[in-house]
Write a protein that binds this DNA or RNA. Structure first.
Lengths: 163, 163
DNA sequence: TCTAAATAGTACATTTATATATTATATATA
DNA sequence: TATATATAATATATAAATGTACTATTTAGA
């Protein structure tokens, strides 16, 4: 892991050179970046044996968690935090792999409905034990109450970003 | 902003379908992803008028915060969380823009030393007020004590990811 | 000293992501 | 109804990031 102490050292130098620099907030931003990168890399590694990568897994899980089993490309884009143009490519690949299905919507013919195929569901059921284990391992340093607290603070942080 | 409530709804469905799914940790991971994306996008937007993007800004700030004003490409890669091959491209561009300087190291001729040019420093001093304002705005929902608490928890979380 | 292994950086090919423009359909309003 | 505007999805071109292989130099060990 990239030692975060070095980052803090750099922030100290930065504040010495530019005293107005908001050190605490900058620290938070860099922590988020480091954590995100680490989570992304570890997920990719865990998913490789199953032939998909992290963004693809995310799309599958969005569908798995949808209320009625289908989502439009733009809903998927919003849910997964991907640009809609990227969704076209990713869903193409997932279709090619036989993991999801495309079909035109009846009530709005501009829309497309995406859904998991039986193979897609089977793949998820296959890999979820590994992913659950990964998540458990990634969080094992935190007590439940710390997780709750962290969730609360992150939600508040995210809430403030919209304005 | 993508409403996080929808994400929570999807997680609820997921847990109903797959009860072993570690909902709390998955929530944390998705929060980190959402926040990271938002921070990244907002930074890019703020930096656009200055002719650089977020990754380029990060590299400049790593150099700005370095102890002696120089870093090697691999140190930069480590600090900024970029792959070394990507650093070559990014530093090429920053050189072309006249914002950083490349020079061979005297004691190890495999190494390259990168440093900010006067123009690079000037650009940073120019844009830092905007960036500081952005950071302040992004964190304005959090009290100082919440920021401290969040930093503590994120550090603990990051620490557990290395193992 | 000589050779093998390790390290630093980059070039090139490939993959992944984004921005912009285009097509088709739906909605609102004159 | 007719026309303008908005929305959904994608195609295409461009940009950004990654993986792999390669060169040059240094370090370690026979």
């Amino acid at each position: 892991m990239a030692d975060f102490a070095l980052t803090e050292q750099r922030l100290a130098v930065t504040c010495r050179r530019y005293p107005d620099f908001p050190r605490r907030l900058a620290t938070l931003v860099r922590l988020i970046k480091h954590i995100h990168k680490q989570l992304h890399d570890e997920a990719n590694l865990a998913l490789k044996p199953y032939g998909i990568n992290h963004p693809e897994y995310n799309l599958l899980m969005m569908l798995y968690g949808s209320a009625n089993g289908t989502m439009s490309p733009s809903e998927l884009a919003d849910a997964a935090g991907e640009k809609s143009a990227n969704i076209t490519r990713l869903t193409n690949e997932l279709c090619d792999k036989g993991l999801i299905d495309r079909s035109g919507s009846a009530d709005d013919r501009r829309k497309i409905e995406l859904s998991l195929t039986p193979q897609g569901e089977a793949l998820l059921k296959n890999l979820l034990p590994d992913i659950c284990a990964l998540l458990a391992r990634q969080g094992h340093h935190l007590t439940v109450s710390e997780q709750v607290q962290l969730e609360k603070l992150l939600k508040k942080f995210l809430g403030g970003l919209a304005d």
